[in-house]
Each structure stands twice: as C-alpha cells, then as structure tokens.
C-alpha cells in the first residue's frame, strides 16, 4: 500500500507541482495518475521512490515513511519503468534485466538466470537477451524495461508514461500484456499517463489531476465516466464519455427477441424476413437477406455483458438486429438499437 498524506512539492523556482495530495493506493491494484501535461503526475510518482522529496507531507510505502529509508535501498525494492525505457545502451538486454539483482549482491550467474526467466515472462524470445537495446524495436524495449523493473520481484511498480512513445497498435498490446502480468503477479502498480483512454483501460482506480498539482477526482473508471466530480473532470474524460460510459452499464435489461434461423448449408427459401444462419451448435454464421443473398454478420455480444456491446451489435448488423449469444457463443436472441437506447434512456431517468 502507498499512502500520500497531505503531500506538497514546491520546486526552487516557486512552481507548485503537487498541492496537498491525499491519496491511498491499495495494495495489489493498478492505480493510474492521469491529467494534462505539467499537472504533477511525474512529480507525485517520483516522490514514492525518493527521486524527488516532498516539501511537506508524508509518503508511506507499506506504512513506512520513505524519508526514513536511504534512496538506493528504497529504490532497489521498487520497480521503475520510464517512457523511453532508459535501457543501458552498453549492456546486453539480459544484463539490463539483471541490473537490480546484481546491485543487491546476487551472483552474475543467478542474476542472468533470473533475467532469462523475466524475458520469457514479458513475452520476449530468449535469444533477444544477447542483443543490445539499440537492436530492439520500441515495443520490445518497453517490455525489457518492464522485465528489468520486475527482476528483483519488488512488491511495488512505478510506471511513468511507459507506453506513450510507442505507436497505438503496439501500445494496446503492451497494455494487454501488463494486465495479464498483473493478474499473475498482483503487484501494487502506480501508472502515470496523460491518455484518459489508457487510464480507463488499465486502471482499477484513477486519480485525475489538474494543473497546479491538485487532485480533481479519485475513483474507479466507471465512476469517473458516470459521475465526474466537476466540469474539469467531465471535459477531461471527454466528449464521447457518454458512449464510453456504456462499457460500464450491463445489458441485462435489454430483452432479446427470437429470430428466424436457417441451418448452415440448408436450402434457402424466399421470405420477406432477414434470417440468421447458425451452425449445428447454434453459433451465428451470418445473415440471409429477404432477397435470399448471404450477408456477413455484424459484431456479437454476450447477454448481460456491457450495453455498449449490445449497441455496437445492433448498429453493425446488416439486418438492424444485434445478435446476442450466451457464454458458449450460442444464439440467445436479437435486439434492435431502439430497444437498447430505450433501456439506456430509462436508466438515465
């Protein structure tokens, strides 16, 4: 657990980067600090491992005031990942990952063995270990950065915009990877980003910060979207937040209706209705239009999952009927966009 108690940081030039921050990061969760550039996210993060010391207030890690621990010792027990990975150019990937174990006195052999395990954990092939950082792609470098931070198995991980410099597709992969790792490792992670989508995607709790070093709201993502504390949070969370918010509303209130089906491969008779093609296990395969032509289907959604999925299914379906499936992927019924919107409306009222 990490606790900020009325923490303020004023730099020598008079800038107040963090202003009376009170916040508890629960053990074993991913907490995201998000906000516009210059709002004090990095400063807050760096006060945890004493890269910066607060002007006033206290930062506690597992109940212990960090100011009571000398910085190198403190930092060896806290993983640290930064934007450009900051890998050591002169060391091989394997030796980069072995850095902290070596600092804490492991033998080189044991440290390298551990490093090899970590490369595997973050999904990198073992032979990459012999390369130098400059020979890796940006995404691979970030994975190595994460592996290096995890090498000594620290309970706490600090990540400062770790994925901001890689392109969006790679970034999503890295985010998924982090979530997968976290499910396995159960670290206490503080993750800084300026990207609200990233914050909502990976944060169990999100601290929205405002320029001047103020905490604007600290809540789970769903609550930020549904009940922004003020106009600043509302506008930071964004214009399409209404739509994004739907990810957190379940679709159980939407009644599914029956739909005519055709077994896959069976002869098609003419009809004035759209008919859904299903395979032997009743899994939807596509549509047959009233003119008897076959049309690929839209997205599917699972009954009870987010209402955003239901709306997407209805809007993307060629027949205008969103297809609901059960947990095994078998047809459960269909919904119209109108129905979904009515449910959303009624929830609002």
């Amino acid at each position: 657990m990490i606790e900020f108690r009325d923490v303020t940081k004023r730099f020598d030039d008079g800038t107040t980067a963090v202003n009376g921050l009170d916040l508890v990061v629960e053990a074993g969760t991913i907490t995201v600090f998000v906000g516009p550039s210059g709002c004090g996210k990095t400063t807050s993060l760096r006060m945890v491992n004493r890269m910066i010391d607060p002007t006033s207030g206290t930062v506690l890690v597992d109940g212990r005031d960090v100011l009571g621990v000398d910085p190198p010792t403190l930092r060896r027990g806290i993983g640290y990942v930064i934007q450009q990975a900051g890998l050591f150019p002169h060391r091989t990937v394997l030796d980069n990952v072995a850095t902290v174990p070596l600092l804490t006195g492991w033998t080189r052999r044991k440290a390298r063995q551990r490093a090899a395990e970590l490369l595997e954990l973050v999904g990198l092939p073992a032979e990459l270990g012999r390369r130098y950082p400059v020979q890796l792609s940006g995404g691979q470098q970030q994975r190595v950065g994460v592996a290096r931070a995890l090498a000594a198995d620290p309970p706490v991980l600090l990540m400062d915009e770790p994925f901001s410099a890689v392109d969006p597709v790679v970034r999503e992969g890295l985010q998924d990877e982090l979530l997968r790792l976290q499910a396995e490792l159960d670290k206490t992670i503080v993750f800084v980003t300026h990207d609200i989508d990233e914050a909502i995607r990976i944060g169990e709790k999100v601290a929205v910060m405002r320029t001047g070093g103020f905490l604007a709201q600290y809540a789970p993502p769903a609550e930020l979207l549904t009940r922004p504390a003020d106009d600043f949070v509302a506008s930071f969370v964004g214009k399409d937040r209404g739509y994004r918010r739907l990810s957190f509303v379940d679709s159980s209130g939407v009644e599914v209706a029956e739909v005519p089906t055709i077994a896959e491969g069976a002869p098609v008779e003419s009809s004035s209705d759209w008919r859904l093609v299903v395979d032997a296990d009743k899994r939807p395969q596509g549509w047959v239009a009233p003119d008897s032509s076959s049309v690929p289907g839209g997205s599917l959604y699972e009954v009870g999952a987010s209402i955003r999925g239901a709306l997407d299914a209805a809007l993307s379906s060629p027949s205008g009927l969103g297809v609901a499936v059960d947990a095994e992927g078998r047809l459960a019924g269909v919904v119209t966009a109108r129905q979904v919107l009515d449910v959303i409306e009624s929830r609002r009222g």
Partner: peptide
C-alpha cells in the same frame, strides 16, 4: 541520455 541516467538512479544505483 537523461532517461538512461534517470533509470540508473531509479534502479537504486
């Protein structure tokens, strides 16, 4: 690189 030095500090060197 500042990032490299920053990482070195952050690792506990």
């Amino acid at each position: 690189d500042r990032g490299v030095v920053d990482a070195a500090r952050g690792m506990g060197m």
